[in-house]
Computed example of a mutant assay.
Amino acid sequence: MSRLIPWEDENSLTSLINNVFSDLQQLAHDRDYIVQRALISQTNHFVDEVNDRVVQPFPGEEITYYSYDSIENNINGLYQSHFLNSISPCGLPLHKLTLKLGSPIILIRNLSPKTGLCNGTRLLCIGFYENFIHVEIVNVSSSGSKIFLPRIPLTSSEDSRFRLFL
C-alpha cells in the first residue's frame, strides 16, 4: 500500500523511514519483509543520509567500508585523500558504506548479468570481510544464491570528462 508523506521538515525523513520499515525491529531478518521495501533517491548525498538512518535500527554491529582514493602520478601530493573522498560524482559510489548483518543492498551496476547481478538486484548482507561482502540474492531468478561482492577498482580513462584542474 502506498502512502503520501508530505515533506515538512527533517522529521519527515524519519516519518518516511518509520513508515516504510515499520516493523524492522521484529522482522529485520525476514527476507520477504526486506525485499518488499526500498527507499530510492536521486542524489548521492541524500542516499548517504538515508542509508545511515535505515541501517541504525538493524540489530548487530555496524561495519563500515571506505574507498581507497588516490591519484596516479600525484608526485607533489596536490590531491589529498580527504579532498578526493569528498567528491561524489554522479554514477560513482560514495566514499563510505555502513552496513549490518541482514541489511539490504540494491546494486547500481551490472556486475554479472549471467548470475543475476544486475542494476536493481536486491541483496541481503550475510557476512563481512576486508575486501568483500558476502550476500544473498533475494529478488531475481537466482534468488537464494549466495555470492561474494568484491571491492571493485575504478579508474578514469584518459578521455574522461571528469577531471580536476588546478
Rank of each mutant, 00 (worst) to 15 (best):
G120S: 13
L13T: 02
N110R: 02
I152S: 10
L123W: 07
T155R: 14
Y65N: 06
D30H: 08
V47Y: 15
R161I: 04
R122D: 00
S67P: 01
Q56K: 09
G91Q: 11
V140E: 11
P153F: 13
T155H: 14
S112I: 00
S143I: 00
P57M: 04
I137V: 15
Y66M: 04
V140I: 12
P6C: 05
Y33D: 07
L24R: 06
L27Y: 09
E130C: 01
L16T: 04
P153S: 13
L111I: 11
S86A: 15
I5N: 08
N11W: 00
D48I: 06
R151P: 02
S141F: 06
T121L: 10
E62K: 09
R151N: 06
S70T: 13
L117P: 04
E158A: 10
T98H: 04
L4N: 01
I40C: 08
Y129D: 14
A38N: 09
V47G: 08
Q36V: 04
F46W: 12
I106H: 11
S103V: 00
N73D: 14
D9P: 02
W7G: 03
D48G: 07
R109A: 12
V135E: 06
S112Q: 13
G116M: 05
L24M: 08
S15P: 00
S86Y: 14
P59V: 07
S160K: 01
R3C: 04
R109L: 08
R3N: 05
L149Y: 09
F132I: 01
R3H: 07
N44H: 02
K96W: 06
L117A: 03
P89F: 12
R53F: 00
L84M: 14
N73K: 14
F132G: 02
E10K: 06
I152N: 08
E8C: 01
D159K: 13
G120C: 08
S142V: 02
L92D: 06
M1D: 02
K100A: 13
G91V: 05
H95W: 07
P6Y: 01
S15V: 12
K100F: 14
I87R: 13
L101M: 15
P104A: 15
F132N: 07
Y66E: 12
P153G: 10
Q80W: 00
I75D: 15
L149C: 11
D69Q: 00
I106D: 12
V47A: 15
F21C: 03
Q80C: 04
N76I: 03
I75Y: 15
Q25V: 12
G144L: 02
L4P: 00
G102E: 07
I106W: 15
L16V: 11
F148N: 14
H95E: 12
R109N: 10
S41K: 01
K146Y: 03
K114V: 13
Y79M: 05
L149V: 03
S41E: 10
